[in-house]
Amino acid sequence: MKIVLAGDHAGYELKKEIKEELEEMGHEVIDAGPYSSDSVDLSDFVYPASLKVARGEADRGIFIDGVGYGSAMIANRVYGIDACVCQDPFCAKLSRQHNDSNVLCLGGKIIGSAIAQEIVKTWMTTDFLNQEKYVRRVKKVKEIEARHLRKLDEIKDLPE
């Protein structure tokens, strides 16, 4: 699977570890930055990475900032993104099984390396439960998305 990683300075160190773990699992990783722990603006990295997932240039995304919520807020404003913040493997499992999330957001300031790696492993290896009630619920979320967000092909000035 092709995974895009992004974040900010607060998630930089954890992003490096997650990248290594994903590569060891056999995934192709696109590192969308940042490339140091120098202070940066989160949206400069998470927004373009979200577009990669939405365009199908990456199968999933993992975004790491201070607590994860900033990344999720940015990513969920892009049509086709279903981002979740997970702070333990149980939440990671349910976010995939019940919600079919395609972006995982982590907080580099609030979870340690070992738990982050377990979260990533769980999220990456859990499939959506293609059962009627979950399909129905995800469909309702997609209907809300279609009502309130513009599809990428409707936007003329998207960054590359």
Score class of each variant (00 low, 15 high):
E118F: 09
R96Q: 04
T125A: 09
I119N: 02
W123C: 01
V103M: 09
N99T: 02
T126G: 02
G107F: 02
S101L: 01
C105M: 01
F90H: 09
G107D: 03
G107I: 00
D88V: 11
D100K: 15
K93C: 10
Q117K: 15
K93A: 10
V85Q: 06
G108Y: 12
G112C: 08
T126F: 04
C105N: 05
L94M: 14
I115Y: 09
K109M: 10
V103T: 09
L94K: 09
A114I: 12
W123T: 00
K121C: 10
K109N: 13
G108F: 02
A116N: 06
K93H: 12
A116K: 06
Q87A: 14
T125N: 15
R96C: 02
G107R: 05
T122V: 10
G107K: 06
Q97T: 09
K93R: 15
C91W: 12
V85I: 05
I119A: 02
S95R: 12
K121Q: 14
P89M: 06
F90P: 01
I111M: 10
N99M: 00
S95C: 14
S113R: 12
I111E: 03
C91Y: 13
N99R: 03
H98V: 08
V85L: 06
K93W: 11
C86V: 08
A116Y: 11
L106F: 06
K121N: 13
S113M: 11
N99E: 03
I119K: 01
L94T: 12
S101Q: 06
Q117H: 15
L106Y: 04
C105L: 00
K121Y: 13
S101C: 05
I115V: 13
F90M: 07
A92V: 03
I119C: 00
A116P: 11
I119Y: 06
Q97N: 08
R96T: 00
I111P: 04
N102V: 00
W123H: 04
C86H: 01
L94V: 13
G112A: 08
P89E: 00
K109Y: 12
C105E: 03
I110P: 00
Q117W: 09
P89V: 10
L104D: 02
C105S: 03
I111S: 03
A92P: 02
I119W: 00
Q87S: 14
F90D: 08
D88H: 12
A92Q: 00
I110G: 07
